[in-house]
Structure formats: structure tokens, C-alpha cells
Design a protein around this nucleic acid. Structure first.
Lengths: 334, 334
DNA sequence: TTGAAAGCGATACCAC
DNA sequence: GTGGTATCGCTTTCAA
């Protein structure tokens, strides 16, 4: 079923049908009506492949994220998708599982799809890919990795600042033994988070001890990492998780060890995902405005977006501490 | 940048380049190597629109779900996506937010994309759409709605059975006042769940009371619905949530009312999403094998899949009760 | 206001 | 083994 079929049945040329379907060019009202009726009857749907091939523009955005299962990424994706649909764009998603090789292959797939713009919300990167993208003729926006350039926008959250605020807050409550739970510490951005923690600890006045552990992203990983942390013998009075999703697992492992939160151990997350409010107890965390990031990303890719001058720019976001019930002064100082 | 460019630079015809790129037909090794080198140099990526238009087959699957934010749907989507990638297929996702109108428009979009197969993992439906799809020449698989047919496969979970098991279990523990928390009760499948609850309650021997409430899908909705339930004056000793995602909110509202789980109130979910284990306390729930459903869906769409005879079939899944820590006998009988 | 025809960038068949 | 070319379904001039 194609334009031809519709044209024949409507006794017009395919050019006319095309005009009707695209509201382009002048068409007599009666003709338009007739065509539309046939389209309806035949349940004709245009072939977007042919359309894109002929038209040149795909009106498709590519979004690549590290872990779609983590609500943090899902939220950003959904924000982009929502903006996109509102502006008549489609969105292709891909998941890398924090694997740079996967990222490269995903990017190439998207380029094959001739995406109009590419958002890479990822923590992993490949220098060669960075170079290729910077030379490509395609609006790109990164979150967490890369640097801004001609066609490349960049959104970065000041993670160290958030971690610092968290550590200072816990220290001010009286915590002197803290643990850090992370994941994928072989990746620069995640390694930086861990380093920020260590530096913040070192800047603390007085005697402080700390330990770190890592496992995969997610509640199960958070639980596993916490187990490691507890086994070291360091008896942390506070545990800082690199994100809320992992913090969920921290909470569970603590509970299984009959450690109460926050009475025995304080816990903090990062991201402020919706779920963090539904944790038990509700998580003290650091807010990252995911919807805003999604909008920024969209505007950076689509010039028609609200902000015309968004392309090739660098955005910095300063996160804010959100204090809820998972933190408190330590029970007894030892 | 296209085949032509590569062909010119490699001093061969576009036909040869095409053969190299597709590993189709015979090509001299030296020629192949040369072409491949040029492709690399030029960073050429084939235009998938042209490819699909010419080749006829898109190797793209469409997946439509009701609420991607609910891990239940996300898990199914990821299972399908994983199978798809392994077989060289791509996947397009769309979200309906339980809105039938949105479903219709999503389906049409996918048809425009000439998807090779369509999976509709949704609770809403439009009779006209059902008809259109059943007449279409496209493998389709439904979850939760619709009926099997020539080109339509169907995956159904025996929800009533799971609800019945849950109610019977709670009743056997001694619960006599129970509440049901659902969402979108205007949609048949969801209404059926509620009805199943009511019927199961009525089948219980002895005097039982019950109430139901509904709000939107998700923790916030679960919390809100629970609030309604508590305000009715029915003091339920057990609350059955239509899914785990909402149960998370039930847990929270109970906690805010200083009601302990399971001592004061037992809570059950449905789906057995990963998160249900990380709830506090870990949720008693009903397992639905999401990965298996994803595989079934994929095989129903792609004949090359493991199961050749999967198309047009009907699959029924019987869910199993998973008892964890959110359920216990009621404290005191009143 | 409408139609004819030239691409868009691949695939695949048929010669050579 | 390789090259020429019809074809896929649509958009978009250019004439009529």
C-alpha cells in the first residue's frame, strides 16, 4: 500500500496526495477531502523510510544512556522524549550498560538512522569516538562526559560539590567513620565521585576514618558493596551511596545486619529519584533536576526549541542537598 | 556521504561496495579489503532508511507499553530488546500512559516505521484498532488485552488466580478486613483484577469486610489510594495492591500512619519486580515471569526465533505466590 | 490547482 | 567477480 494506490483510487496524482498529507502547497478543498477519505478507507500510513530518504530530514533524535533500569536515566530519557514528541520528533533509545564498546556501536547505529541529534547520557567514553563525533556534522549533547565544542553541547553536574555538601553535613552531625558505595570506578566520572568523597573526608577537621566499596549499579550492587564495607571491620556510622538506586540496596543490607537507619547508621543517596522518597526511611539525598536536564538536552539538539542559542554550549548544574530521614547524629562516639 | 562516494574512492561500483558491506555474493579478497579500508577512512555508515526502503524489511520491532516507569513494563521491554539485538533487530518504544487514544496513534506511527512486528504490552484497547490490526499483514503480540488470531498472538497471565491465591493465603492467616488498591479501573483488565478481588473475598467463609480504592499507577498513587482506604473507616488488617509499584506507596502511607507492616497491617503486591525485594519489609507478592514474557513476545514476532510455531498462538501464564515478610497473621481479631 | 519526473541511497537481479 | 540498472515510496521542483 503506497501513495500510488491512494492516488489511483482518488483519481489524482501522487504529488497531490503528498501535498494533502503534508499540508504543503495548494490543494482544492474538494480534492483534499476526497483524498483524505480514501486515505482513511485504505488505512494508509506513509512509509517513513521513503519519506525520510526523500525529504532528507529524519526528525528522529537518538538517546543513549548507561543504564535504563536506573530511574535517573529513565527520567532524563522521558523528559527528552516528551519534548521531542511535542515538537514532532521521534526518539530512539539505546542502553550501554556502562560499556564503551557498546556506546561506540550504538552511536554508529544512530548515525545510520540519520538522527537529527544525539544525546549521550553516559559515564563511559572512547577518545576515538569523541573525536569522530566532534568532526561529525551533527548536533550532540553529552551528560557527564566529553567537552563542549562547535557542534557539541555539554551538561555537567557539579558532583564533587554535592558530595562535599553531604560529607560536611554528616561530619557536622558528628560522624567520624564513613563509607562510600560506588560502581564502575574504572570510569572517569565515577572515579571522580569516589575521589571527591576521599578528598572531602581528608578536608574534615579532626580524626576521621573511611572506606570505599564498589559493585554494579543498582540495589543488588548497593547491597553487595555494603556487605564488603561492613566486612572490612570499619564500622561506619554513615554510608554515602553514589546514587539513590544503589542506596536502596545499602538500606537493605543494613537492615539484614540489624543495623537501624538512621539510629545506628546514616545513609545518603544521590539524584533524588522519585523512589528515594519511598525508601524506608526516606533518603537524604542530593537533588539532580532530571527533567531540566532533559529539556536542556533537547534544546541543545533542536534549534527550534525554546532556547535558540543552546547549541555548542556548556551547562553546569549545582546540585542541592535534600535532607530527609535517613540521616541523624551517630548514636555513640567510639 | 553515500555508497557512491565510497565506490568512487575505491574505484569499484556501488554494487560491489554493497556486497562487501552485506557479506553477500562473491568478492575478491583484495577488493574487499580495499573497500573496507575506504569505508573506515571515510567513516561511512550506511543509511538505514535507504537500506530498508530498498530491501523491503526493516528489521525493526515496535514495542508499546502502558507505563515505562513501572519496572514491570521496563523489564519486559528490556527482555524483548535484548532478544532483538541478538538477532540483529532494532526496537522502537512508545509509552501510552494507559491512554487508548495514545495507543492508536503509537500503533500508526509504528506502522509508518514499517515495523516487522508489533508488541503491545498494554491494558487499554480500542475495538477499531483491534480490528485494524487483525486485518493487517503484520505479526502482532498482545499482553493483557485482545484475542489471538491469524497474525495475532496473545500472552495472558491468569491474574484472577494470583489474586485468589493471595486472598486465600491472607484469609488463612486470619485476616477478615482487607483492602484492595488499584488503578485505572475504567480499563477492562484492571477492572477484572478488582472484580477478582471482590469475588475472592465473597468466596471466603465466615464474615469478611472489604474496601477498594484506586489512584494512578505508581508509588504516589498507591500512597494516595491507601489514604482513601484508611479514611473510609474500614480498618483493614491487610491491603492487596494490584502491583508492586503501587505497593511501595501503600507501605509508605501505612508507615506515616504509624501502622507497622506486617504486625498491624499485611501488604501484598503483584509482579515480583526486583524492587519488591528491597521494599521494607520485603514484599509478599505474586511472581510474573517478565523475562519469559519478553521472550515469548519476541518469538511470536520473529519466526527465526527459537519457537517457529509461535505465531498466532495463545499463551497462558499461571502466576505463583511469593511469600516474604510483608504478611503475617493479624495482631488481634476484632 | 494539478501532474510529470528527477532524485534520495540502498538492494538485488542480470549480464558480462 | 564485477558492473549496470530497475526498484523501493516518497518529496519536491518545474510546467502546464
Amino acid at each position: 500500500m503506497n501513495l500510488q494506490d491512494v492516488a489511483k483510487k482518488a483519481r489524482v496524482s501522487i504529488a497531490t496526495v503528498s501535498r494533502v498529507l503534508n499540508n504543503a502547497g495548494p490543494v482544492k478543498n474538494s480534492t483534499r477531502a476526497r483524498v483524505l477519505k480514501i486515505v482513511e478507507e485504505l488505512k494508509y500510513h506513509p512509509n517513513l523510510y521513503a519519506r525520510t530518504l526523500a525529504g532528507g530530514k529524519s526528525r528522529t533524535l537518538g538517546v543513549i544512556v548507561s543504564n535504563l533500569e536506573n530511574p535517573f536515566f529513565l527520567d532524563i530519557f522521558r523528559a527528552i522524549e516528551s519534548d521531542a514528541h511535542q515538537h514532532g520528533y521521534e526518539v530512539l533509545v539505546a542502553n550501554t550498560d556502562y560499556c564503551a564498546r557498546q556506546l561506540v556501536s550504538d552511536v554508529h547505529l544512530m548515525m545510520g538512522r540519520r538522527v537529527t541529534g544525539l544525546a549521550a547520557i553516559v559515564s563511559e567514553m572512547e577518545p576515538a569516538l569523541m573525536k569522530e563525533l566532534s568532526e561529525a556534522n551533527l548536533p550532540v549533547v553529552f551528560y557527564d562526559v566529553g567537552t563542549a565544542g562547535r557542534n557539541i553541547s555539554n551538561i555537567k553536574v557539579n558532583y564533587p560539590k554535592g558530595i562535599q555538601k553531604t560529607v560536611e553535613y554528616l561530619h557536622s552531625l558528628g560522624h567520624r567513620r564513613m563509607g562510600f558505595v560506588g560502581h564502575h570506578t574504572e570510569l572517569d566520572p565515577l572515579l571522580d565521585r569516589k575521589k571527591s568523597f576521599i578528598e572531602a573526608m581528608k578536608r574534615c577537621s579532626g580524626h576521621v576514618e573511611y572506606g570505599t566499596a564498589a559493585d554494579r549499579d543498582g540495589p543488588a550492587g548497593g547491597q553487595q558493596a555494603t556487605r564488603q564495607l561492613l566486612e572490612t571491620g570499619l564500622r561506619p556510622t554513615a554510608i554515602i551511596a553514589v546514587n539513590d538506586f544503589m542506596a536502596l540496596g545499602v538500606l537493605r543490607e543494613l537492615r539484614e545486619n540489624n543495623l537501624r537507619v538512621p539510629q545506628d547508621v546514616s545513609v545518603t543517596g544521590y539524584d533524588n529519584i522519585r523512589l528515594s522518597e519511598f525508601a524506608v526511611p526516606p533518603l537524604t539525598t542530593v537533588n539532580i533536576p532530571r527533567a531540566e536536564i532533559g529539556h536542556l538536552a533537547f534544546n541543545a539538539l533542536v534549534p527550534e526549541g525554546d532556547d535558540v542559542h543552546a547549541q555548542g554550549r556548556e551547562f553546569r548544574i549545582t546540585p542541592e542537598l535534600v535532607i530527609r530521614e535517613s540521616t541523624a547524629p551517630p548514636r555513640s562516639s567510639t
